[in-house]
Design a protein around this nucleic acid. Structure first.
Lengths: 240, 240
DNA sequence: TACCGTTGACTGACTGTTCAGTCTAAACGT
DNA sequence: ACGTTTAGACTGAACAGTCAGTCAACGGTA
């Protein structure tokens, strides 16, 4: 609020503006199809000014990725703080990643994740960023689990192992949802992820909205696969 | 084998040659950085000839994706047929996706998967291809599970649900491995995936090569997290 | 004046695609 | 058996469009 702050915020505001514009364009058109001119237009600036601020196109896009990651991390932290218990926190994590349109989230934000993976696969610097960001994500999960264990909500299991599994599961499910898979939609992904967590951590979880209208096709498939495998449960060795 | 077959194979060979070259270039440089000149050079042809065969760059790259998917599907089928029992088949599936350098596999094939997701996210036609390919993958898993259930190796659980979970888990783990994550490497990914399957299907699985030389750092991490979560299992309500 | 954010105009490099034609080998007519 | 025609694979060269990055100048401010 002081004069000094406002002075720096003049350029920083511009910078933020451009980064936000870049994130939007990447989400809409995709990383490879993002042109400096698009970002400049959306930020009400000239292409030359974008170069003036970020030096190069790669600089801009890398900064945009970092910006988006940071924003996501902060919004997730706030979301966690707003949940009453560990179970609600866990479900929130799943909803953020596996359910379409996380409210105020930018549409097409999934594409940005996929693009980030592709870029991290080849650009070593972005690979580092992704690694620390993934570690943050894992730590977030671990903290929630430890909180739940402390409160007696969850059972005592290997926290790190669970975090790896759960994070991988959510990544895989979110891909399906992002790619509009017919079988694995948001509802199914949520159910699968929470079902896994409930089994592993030892709590009960019931899917919301039992009287859903979209259960017709899915029930048919499940019944078919169940009839293929008759109910007589004869678990072999080490059922535990 | 007839003359007619050999005549068509003249052009089909060239086509295959170009597709193979395209897949290689995509794996090496990435989808966005693939130029038709690169593909042409690798196939000992001129850029014009590539257009002559595929009409457009998009046509080439789309065909290359399909080609690669098909090849992967066939090689997986053969691999499955060569395994003695369902447990070995399951482990083979995990190894194919989560362990680096699947023998004769093209290096950098993971990048092709990531690129396929990115392209499928925006190009509706490729989205269709990915969907049917993913369905194939799920069916492969389901078949293995049913075989194992029939032979008494696996317990009787919801096959479709398991396939969705297991496929998503492998996708997520393979991303970590592909991106050279420090925590989730090939060994860890294999252990996590097979551990999940073993728990869900009720069989025992022991990680291979206990006295491995590459277990120094990993053991340290695991021990730390284990000491954080002491072994005294006090599962709360509704365990299992 | 000196500085800095800003820009329009420009350029140099890259690249997908076209096109006019070349080469080869089979098909054909005689 | 032999010249001619045809068809199709193939190419070098050029075209046309795109786009990241440069640069000299301009205007406001300290």
């Amino acid at each position: 609020m002081t004069a000094a702050t406002r002075e720096t915020s003049a350029q920083d505001e511009r910078r933020e503006q451009m980064l936000a514009a870049a994130v939007e364009v990447i989400c809409e058109r995709g990383f490879a199809e993002t042109r400096i001119a698009d970002v400049a237009t959306r930020a009400n600036a000239s292409p030359a000014l974008v170069i003036y601020y970020f030096g190069t196109k790669d600089g801009l896009l890398t900064a945009a990725f970092r910006h988006s990651e940071e924003k996501f991390y902060r919004s997730t932290s706030e979301l966690m703080a707003a949940q009453p218990d560990a179970r609600a926190k866990l479900e929130s994590l799943v909803r953020v990643t596996c359910v379409k349109q996380g409210r105020d989230e930018v549409p097409g934000a999934w594409g940005l994740w996929l693009d980030l993976w592709v870029q991290a696969f080849r650009h070593p610097e972005l690979s580092k960023d992704r690694a620390v960001f993934d570690r943050r994500w894992a730590v977030t999960i671990e903290d929630v689990v430890r909180e739940g264990q402390g409160a007696g909500e969850f059972g005592e299991i290997d926290v790190e192992e669970f975090a790896i599994s759960f994070a991988a599961l959510m990544d895989g499910l979110s891909i399906q949802v992002a790619l509009d898979d017919e079988i694995v939609d948001s509802t199914r992904a949520l159910a699968v992820a929470m079902g896994f967590a409930a089994r592993a951590l030892g709590f009960t979880w019931v899917p919301p909205g039992r009287a859903g209208a979209d259960s017709s096709r899915r029930n048919k498939d499940r019944q078919r696969s169940e009839s293929t495998a008759p109910r007589a449960a004869k678990l072999p060795r080490s059922a535990r």
